[in-house]
């Protein structure tokens, strides 16, 4: 896919809207926090949690201010919450000012993350987090 500025922004906005709807849905349905609706394919088919399983629960505890709980459920929740909070603001700023700072940042980040020095440590962190997830039995 040839990613243009508007395409990236619409994908991000759509993802954020879907994320907010999903979090709100889980907040309203209190029972589903105890027995979460399983949307994750890997967990559904193999019963093994995927690297990002539990980030919904982590974000839900973040909204209640339980930072320690959120970290012990899944640290990826912090990253997702950060992106969900700040990317709509950045996009709004860009659209109002008719600039493409976020798109430029995204492209720089992509080339930066592709460097083996950065990519391999990040991969190892994700793997460690995944092993931790499996041990916790999310």
């Amino acid at each position: 896919m040839v990613l243009s500025r508007n395409k990236l922004y619409s994908i991000l906005i759509m993802a954020c809207v879907a994320g907010y709807i999903w979090v709100c849905y889980n907040m309203v349905n209190k029972q589903s926090v105890l027995e979460p609706v399983e949307v994750c394919f890997i967990k559904y088919f193999t019963n093994i949690p995927c690297p990002s399983c539990g980030s919904t629960r982590a974000i839900l505890s973040l909204t209640k201010g339980n930072f320690n709980d959120a970290f012990s459920i899944n640290p990826i929740g912090f990253l997702v919450a950060f992106i969900m909070l700040f990317s709509p603001l950045w996009i709004l700023l860009d659209v109002v000012a008719k600039k493409n700072t976020l798109f430029a940042f995204y492209q720089n980040l992509e080339t930066y993350l592709r460097r083996p020095k950065i990519a391999i440590p990040l991969l190892i962190i994700i793997m460690i987090n995944w092993i931790w997830n499996i041990n916790k039995g999310l």
Binding site: A15, A18, W22, V39, F41, C53
Partner: peptide, 9 residues
């Protein structure tokens, strides 16, 4: 990766 494959969708 961060969203479980975009909630599966």
């Amino acid at each position: 990766l961060l969203t479980c494959g975009g909630l599966g969708i």
